[in-house]
Amino acid sequence: MLPDIDLRIANMIKALEQVILPALPRDQRLARDQAMLVAGHLRMIGEQWKSALRYEQVALDDLQGLARDLLPGAPAFLADDLAAALAMAEACDRASVTAIEQANIAIGHAVDAVILGGSDHAPMPSAAVDRLLDYALRHARRERSWFKANRLDPDQNDLPDLVTMLAETN
C-alpha cells in the first residue's frame, strides 16, 4: 500500500519534532510535554504494530497454558467455567487481534476466579502456585520487553528487543 503505515508514522514524528514543537510557545509546558509524549508513543507504536497480532497470539497461548495447569486443582464449581473459557480461546479466530483480545479477557476472568478460590477461598495447590508464578514472570517479561521503548523500566538494558523476544517464543 502507498503510503504504508510506517512511513506515515515516521512523517508524523518529524512533523511533531521539527514543526509543531518549535512552534509551541515556551510557556505552554503541558502542550510541549504532551507533544513530546505523542512523538514517544508514535515511535513505540511504530515498532510494535506489525507484531501486535503475533504478540497477542503468544500472550493467549501462554495464558491458555496457565489455564490448563490450573484446571486439575481448581474447585469443581470453577473448573467448568475455566474449561469453557479455554474451549472458547482454542476456537477463536487467530488472525483477528480483536478476537484474541476477547478470548484473553474471558480466560483471564476464569483464571482470576480460580486464583481467588470462590467464597471459601480454598487454598491453591503449591504446584499450581509455582506454575502461576512461572507464568507471571514470563508475562511480565514479555510486557516489559514490548514496552521497553517507554524508558521507564529501571532494568530496560536487560530486556531483549521485540524481534528477539517474539522469536524466542516460537
Binding site: 509543531i20 512552534a23 509551541l24 503541558l30 502542550a31 510541549r32 483480545e101 514490548w146
Partner: peptide, 25 residues
Amino acid sequence: MLPSIDLRIANIVKALEQVVLPALT
C-alpha cells in the same frame, strides 16, 4: 497488552486536539 494500540492512538488524538492545537498561536 495493556495499554492497547487502539487506546494509545485515541489518547494521542485527544492530546493533539485538546491540548497541542489550542496552545498554538
